[in-house]
């Protein structure tokens, strides 16, 4: 089975990859969007003084 990788997907903020699997006739059998990144803001803002949170979460996306 043939695989097409679109890696990385571009012109957006963040990381992404698309895997496309073709069947014997060359038609799309299945496709997957994968997000290969994780930074973990959900965890490391825990316990942060509330007045500091805006200065940290603005670094989730700078675009």
């Amino acid at each position: 089975m043939k695989r097409i990788a679109i890696d990385p997907i571009t012109r957006l903020e963040g990381h992404g990859k698309i895997m496309i699997f073709l069947n014997e006739e060359g038609k799309v059998d299945n496709a997957f969007l994968q997000i290969p990144e994780l930074r973990g803001f959900e965890k490391f803002v825990e316990g942060l003084p509330i007045e500091e949170v805006p200065r940290v979460v603005t670094r989730i996306c700078g675009v």
């Binding site: 903020e13 963040g14 990144e37 930074r39 670094r59 989730i60 996306c61 700078g62 675009v63």
Partner: peptide, 8 residues
């Protein structure tokens, strides 16, 4: 592991 702010 970035936010894109440097690109901007």
């Amino acid at each position: 592991a970035a936010c894109g702010g440097c690109d901007v």
